[in-house]
Design a protein around this nucleic acid. Structure first.
Lengths: 157, 157
DNA sequence: TTACGGCCTGTACCCCACTACAGGGTCAAT
DNA sequence: ATTGACCCTGTAGTGGGGTACAGGCCGTAA
């Protein structure tokens, strides 16, 4: 009953991981890892004689990146694109830069939107403090003022 | 005698919208609107004698908010919660504040993660400019350095 | 009054991202 | 040698979030 078994590969000896270890370390299910492999999100790992997948530890970070990207509203396809953005000898720099700056732009947009949401929520708590004769739903007020749409037009409610 | 059917309700006369008009203005399909209604994301609108849904214009902003929230990695359930955060006469202020600050915290986390992604991408373009003997995949480097995991623990970067 | 687009309900179907078996081989401790 | 956890391939099913009809009523310009 050696629970130590689980971390054997990490703490010493062998430098590779089984799929189960990868799953545990990255916080996803085994099936998800095989799914990502099928979808080309993570590379096919080498196999042992037994046919077992033999993972390098880096794959854990890659999977965590994928999960993060998803939480931030990117699809798996987006995540794949992000991960494949790299400088390869025969890729022109211009191409990489173009793609990267597109991604940066879309990230900036998300950040802006999140900031607007955040300030709407902040307004809500403030209104709560003041307990004055304030509208009963500041978020909707913000929404109705077009927080995401009319922002740059200088409109007000 | 009402001409210009499509914008009639918007430009003058009647202050309400048909489902088709709402769809067009908010950039989603008609079926999506009915779906949101079934799911309780937008209130059931009053009906005309004909049975047609008769929307107040505010619903457009509400739908746009829902769409934005989705793009930012919130589920429809999350969006519903965000929209229902309001100060009602019989809701205690404390409850609202607690929920709001939880939402704000999760938004802040998203912003942090996006900033980290962004800087990884920025590094990529810089590396590209310098054309030096730099790693071929800065994003993965960042990932491998645990940009999302080790950050808050004061670990190396 | 007819044509034709818009709206109604209801049901079925679709894509994405998993998740769960079934049936069978592997590995390490007992 | 056996046990039981772990891994394999393959296929099927699930839940979220829509999307697409079918069959039928409404509304209005010609």
């Amino acid at each position: 009953m050696r629970a130590r078994n689980k971390i054997r590969a990490i703490s010493g000896g062998r430098q590779t991981l089984t799929i189960g270890q990868v799953a545990q370390l990255s916080g996803v299910g085994i099936e998800t890892i095989r799914f990502y492999e099928r979808e080309g999100l993570i590379p096919e790992p080498p196999r042992r004689e037994s046919g077992y997948r033999d993972y390098p530890p880096e794959v854990v970070k890659r999977i965590q990146f994928i999960k993060k990207a998803q939480e931030l509203g990117f699809s798996l396809k987006d995540a794949k694109e992000l991960l494949s953005l790299r400088i390869k000898p025969n890729t022109t720099c211009a191409v990489v830069k173009t793609k990267a700056s597109q991604k940066i732009a879309s990230i900036d947009e998300k950040i802006q939107d999140l900031e607007r949401m955040k300030s709407a929520l902040a307004k809500l708590t403030t209104a709560c403090d003041e307990r004055g004769p304030i509208s009963e739903c500041p978020i909707l007020d913000a929404v109705e003022a077009g927080i995401f749409q009319a922002q740059s037009k200088g409109e007000k409610r």
